[in-house]
Design a protein around this nucleic acid. Sequence first.
DNA 1: TCTTGACCTAGAGTACACTCTAAGAAGTAC
DNA 2: GTACTTCTTAGAGTGTACTCTAGGTCAAGA
Lengths: 126, 126
Amino acid sequence: MKIGELSERSGLSVHTIRYYERIGLLPHADRDVSGRRDYHPEILGWIAFLGRLKATDMSINDMLKFSKLRVNGSETASERRAMLEAHRDTVLAKIALLQDSLKAIDIKIAAHAQEQSEEESDETNA
Amino acid sequence: MKIGELSERSGLSVHTIRYYERIGLLPHADRDVSGRRDYHPEILGWIAFLGRLKATDMSINDMLKFSKLRVNGSETASERRAMLEAHRDTVLAKIALLQDSLKAIDIKIAAHAQEQSEEESDETNA
DNA sequence: TCTTGACCTAGAGTACACTCTAAGAAGTAC
DNA sequence: GTACTTCTTAGAGTGTACTCTAGGTCAAGA
C-alpha cells in the first residue's frame, strides 16, 4: 500500500504520516524500487492504537516513549503496561474533571434560563 | 487587591493575568495612583468560571467570544446561553470519546497482562 | 512521447497558549 | 536613605503538533 492509500484508510494526512515517521512514531516504511514508501496493512492497527492514545490526549512525547518500548520487544511489556495503566488513571481523572466542570457550566446555563424567563414575564407585565 | 495577590488567589500567574487582560479575556483593571492594577474581589468569580471553560477545553478564542458577549450586557444572554449549550454538547461528546478510547486501551492492558502471566508460567515450567 | 498525478526531501511556516526578558518606576522595611 | 520587592510596558521566546512549500523524480495512461 502506498502512502496515499494509507492516508485515506488511516485518516492521517500524507504530511502527518511522514511527520510521524520522521519523529519515530511510525516505523521506517519499506520502499519500492523507486524509493517510495510501501506499507504492510498491519500498520493500520498500530495507527488505530495511536489514535486511541491521541484521542485520550496522550502527548506525542509519551506516544513516542511507548512506541520505542514496543520496538524493543517483549522485554518491555511490563513497562508498557505500567505506562498504559498510568495513562488510564490520567484519563479517568480528566473525565471526572470534565464532569465536574460541566456541572458548574450547567448551573450557569440554568441561571441564563432564569434570566430569560424573567425577561419574558417582564414583557408580559409591560 | 494587587495583581500578585490575585495571582495567588486565582491560581493564574501574574504573566497570565496580564496576558488575559491584553487579549480581552479579563476586563481592563482599575489602577491605583501609581498606575498599578487594583482588583475588586468579584473578578475571582469570573476567573473561576473561565477556569471551568478552560478545564473543559474551550479555546481562548471561544472564551473571548463569550466574554465579549458578557461585556455587552443582558441583551446577549440568549446568545451566551446558546454558546454554553453547544459547548456542553461538545464536552459530552468528548467524555464519550474518552470512555470509548479507554475501553480500547484497557483491552491492550489486558493483552499485556495475558502476555506477562504466560511468561510467568513459562518460568514456572522451565 | 507527453502529460498528469502521486510521490520524494529538507526545511520553513502556522496556530495556540502562554511565559519570559529587559529596563525601569514606585512602595515598604529597617 | 538604601535595599528589597512588586509592580509597569513592549515585545521576544517557547513548546506542541502539525502543515505546507519548493524543487524535483518517477510511473502509468492517452
